[in-house]
């Protein structure tokens, strides 16, 4: 008999449905500090972030006029298998993860390799907020106000040599703090990669925050990748190594199932996942599905990079 235990949320944390359904105007109109704290599901743990205090973020829209998703949606519904495979697992299981101190290693075919302490790593960069659509390969999507800087700025700073054609990213391995890594559901560490031109594209971001605050653990603290025209799994989280390489890196999902997940993973409504349609998606917070846009709506900016690529073969 299946009896699902309700999540461990004290009743004081549960948002009344009326408020939940009307959350955007609620956030707009309510007294800010207390309202945001009352809405937040993540005040449970000291290491997790309280809801952002700056109400302007929930007012943000994408360039297509889509409102951003709620903080609760962005921080309680995550795919981060290092903390478990269920959507609530990362929020629930990432409380003991320590995103500081943190060191990022730059290695491979690059003129300025080295181990960088995170603050030194970030210091030269101008941090900005950007609203991007996020489309998961599982056919759901959100609109998220990220905070970070263009990966291209970093690439120019560390100065790859002529041999560098791809960039390979690696997630930290800490089975003590990441219960999912104590299972064999994926081969660890998680590895992702980009072609050098994709890494240099101005839309590609290294992200340190969301909603104007530092990334919560479940969203990939303290440093993650965002490539908005690709499926979400390309956005590797909790990055500890950025390596410039000659060969196309073998990325985690590609290695796990090459028939279903490829190196490119460009959002493409015309190429279905072998098991489900990619033509439509459910925007979290909406009832009806909406049409998925080519390259997740960024075709004008990125389409030319793939002019010579057979997108049905290079999934």
């Amino acid at each position: 008999m299946l009896i699902r235990r309700p999540p461990d949320i004290p009743s004081s944390e549960i948002t009344p449905e009326r408020v939940f359904l009307d959350r955007r105007s609620f956030i707009r109109h309510a007294a800010l500090g207390t309202a945001a704290a009352a809405l937040s599901p993540s005040t449970l743990s000291g290491t997790r972030h309280t809801a952002p205090q700056d109400p302007r973020f929930s007012e943000l829209e994408s360039e297509l006029g889509e409102p951003v998703n709620a903080w609760t949606e962005i921080t309680t519904y995550n795919n981060f298998y290092e903390f478990g495979t269920a959507k609530e697992d990362p929020h629930r299981n990432s409380g003991s993860f320590r995103p500081r101190p943190w060191t990022v290693r730059i290695e491979g075919h690059v003129n300025n390799p080295g181990d960088y302490e995170l603050d030194d790593f970030l210091a030269p960069h101008r941090i900005e907020d950007r609203v991007y659509r996020m489309r998961c390969v599982e056919a759901w999507s959100m609109v998220i106000p990220w905070r970070g800087f263009p990966l291209g700025d970093l690439v120019r700073r560390v100065d790859p040599t002529g041999d560098a054609r791809f960039v390979e990213f690696t997630t930290i391995v800490r089975p003590d703090e990441m219960p999912g890594q104590r299972t064999g559901v994926l081969p660890w560490p998680y590895v992702e990669g980009l072609r050098l031109d994709e890494a240099m594209h101005p839309l590609t971001m290294l992200v340190t925050g969301v909603y104007g605050v530092d990334l919560p653990n479940q969203n990939g603290a303290p440093l993650r990748l965002i490539v908005p025209w690709k499926y979400g799994f390309k956005g590797i989280k909790s990055i500890v190594s950025i390596r410039f390489v000659e060969e196309m890196p073998m990325t985690t999902w590609w290695a796990a199932n090459a028939r279903e997940y490829g190196f490119y993973a460009n959002v493409n409504p015309e190429v279905d996942h072998p098991r489900w349609s990619q033509a439509r998606e459910r925007r979290i917070g909406e009832l009806r599905r909406r049409e998925t846009l080519m390259f997740n709506g960024y075709a004008n900016q990125v389409g030319q990079m793939y002019a010579d690529l057979d997108l049905t073969r290079w999934i």
């Binding site: 008999m1 009896i3 309700p6 948002t15 009344p16 449905e17 709620a70 959507k87 759901w140």
Partner: peptide, 25 residues
Amino acid sequence: VSALAPAAWIAGGTFRGWLGVNPIE
């Protein structure tokens, strides 16, 4: 009781919001 528990859980969650942010799924 056990067989009706999931239905009760769903009904409760619909009103109390514990179905998460993607309730259909």
